[in-house]
Structure formats: C-alpha cells, structure tokens
C-alpha cells in the first residue's frame, strides 16, 4: 500500500512538472526559443488565481477561467513586446532575456502579493478519497484529472482544428508555412498564449496543495529536466518525462537519506543524457536550418 500511495503522489506531482515541461516544449518547437521563465509563469498564474479567488472571492471555476484568460493575454503581450523583436537573434541572447524575465516576474509577485507563503482556497481542499487502505487527497486527484483533461483537449486541438494543424505546420517548416500564407508571427503569439495558459493551469492545480510564494517558479528547472528526459520537442514526451521525474522524486524521498530527493530529478537527467541523449521520444527529424 505504501507503494501505491507513493505512486499516487508521484504521479500528481509529476503532472505539474509535465505541464510546465509542456510549456517549454510548445514554445521551443514553434519558435526554437527556450523560455526559462516558464516556471515563473506558473507562479504568476497561481497568484492571479489567488487574486480572483481569495481576494475578490470569485467562485473557483470562474476564477480558474479568468486566470487562464489573463495569463493567455500575458503570453501574447510578452511575445509581442519581448520575444518577437528577438526572432533571429542568437539563442543565448533569448535565453538571457527569459532568465531576466524570470527575475522580474519574481520581484513583481513579491511586490504585489508579498513574500509570505499563501494557499489558494479550493472548494475541494482537505477532502480525501479512500479506496481500501489507499488515501488520495482530492487535490491530487484534481491535478491528475485536470492534466488528463487538458492533454486531451490539446491533443484534439492539434490534431483536428485548422489552427492547431497550422501551429504544427509552422513548427515543422517555418518558411513553408510563410509561403502558404499562414500568418506565422500571429501563430507565435498564440503559441505563447497557449504556453502561458498551460503554465497557469499547472499553477492553479498545484496552489491548493503546496503553499505558493514568489519562488515556486524554480520547479521550472525540474520541469526543464523533465522536458529533456522526454525528448525536448515531443509533447507526450514532456508529460511522460514529468511523470518520471515526479515518481523518481517520491521514491528517492522514501528510500534515500533526506536531501537526495531534491537531487533525483537531475540525477535522472544525467543518467538519461548518458544512456539515451535524444530523450524518450526523440523528435523524429532534425530541424532544418
């Protein structure tokens, strides 16, 4: 039973990593930029939700929708203001920009919402589901179900909608996408919106479980490891990599001396890079330069 319990919490934590990793991969696939502020977007999303739900007292569902809308807008604004002018600049410059953006977002959150940890009020907080001896917190259940739901929606979006296919097209061959008349720059805005939205969703899911403070965005680094484990460039790989990191962390926490759990994600990353550097799901083809 211990084992099952561990798996449950590992999976739910892994879902959060997976969602943030998904944001990394979305942006990387479309624009070849690595956004190190992805975790901080999650943090910002959690605080926006705190504003709507805790401070303004909106019902949870409406607060969630409003948060997603606001964060999608934030994604668009960031792309237009900061990242569109950086198209074609060296990767290093873009990377530094995203790291700087992370600092700004953390400082901003500290200034607006304070540095003390807070919890997002969720109607399901504290309740548990008992299956035999297994005790599952509703928060964890919601994380897993929410992730499954979001992934299904994303799958349907990318597979069947015109816009979703156009996003795939633009990430597979940018020049050809331009030539057939796809407004590639607008597509990039939408990708940023989507990525910020996914990050915010992860933030809202995780906020009732763990207290949030301006520094929670640092899980983004673990999620980055998850994205690489999954094969950086594969959406299912990102989720799977996240789950793997989450599970390994839980088991390391139980079976290894204290402190090792926090290292486990990076050990997993190193092992992965040694035995299978292309990740679980290698993107099947090198991008054309």
């Amino acid at each position: 039973m211990d084992l099952l319990q561990l798996i449950v919490s590992g999976v739910s934590q892994g879902c959060v990593y997976g969602l943030i990793a998904l944001g990394f991969v979305l942006i990387y696939k479309a624009t070849e930029m690595v956004n190190f502020a992805q975790g901080d977007l999650m943090m910002l999303g959690a605080y926006v939700a705190v504003t709507f739900i805790n401070i303004l007292g909106w019902p949870f569902g409406w607060g969630l929708l409003a948060t997603l809308a606001v964060m999608a807008l934030v994604g668009v604004v960031l792309e237009r203001l900061l990242f569109r002018p950086m198209l074609g600049e060296p990767h290093f410059a873009v990377l530094m920009l995203t790291i700087g953006l992370g600092f700004i977002l953390r400082a901003f959150a500290g200034a607006v919402w304070g540095n003390e940890p807070q919890a997002l009020h969720a109607p399901y907080a504290g309740q548990v589901l008992r299956v035999g001896e297994l005790v599952i917190g509703y928060e964890n259940l919601v994380i897993v179900l929410g992730t499954v739901l979001l992934c299904t929606l994303l799958y349907l979006f990318f597979r069947f909608t015109r816009l979703g296919i156009a996003m795939q097209a633009a990430s597979q061959n940018q020049l050809a996408a331009f030539y057939v008349g796809i407004p590639v720059k607008r597509i990039f805005s939408l990708v940023w919106a989507l990525s910020a939205l996914v990050a915010a969703f992860a933030g809202v899911l995780t906020a009732p479980v763990s207290m949030i403070d301006p520094l929670i965005g640092f899980v983004g680094i673990k999620a980055f490891a998850a994205a690489i484990v999954g094969g950086f460039g594969s959406l299912p790989g990102a989720i799977l990599g996240g789950l793997l990191v989450g599970l390994v962390e839980q088991f390391a926490g139980l079976y290894l001396p204290p402190g090792y759990a926090d290292m486990s994600a990076y050990v997993l990353l190193l092992v992965m890079l040694m035995i299978r550097p292309e990740g679980l799901f290698a993107s099947m083809q090198q991008k054309k330069v």
Binding site: R162, Q168, A169, A176, G181, I182, M284
Partner: peptide, 17 residues
C-alpha cells in the same frame, strides 16, 4: 519543403489556410 509530419491531405489543407 512539405510539412513532414502532416499527412498529404493536411498539407493540402494548409495550402488553403
């Protein structure tokens, strides 16, 4: 410069985007 992972029909649909 086709879209490698889209199928033939999706490639054509993208032409009419």
């Amino acid at each position: 410069e086709v879209f490698p992972f889209l199928n033939v029909e999706e490639n054509l649909q993208m032409g009419a985007f």
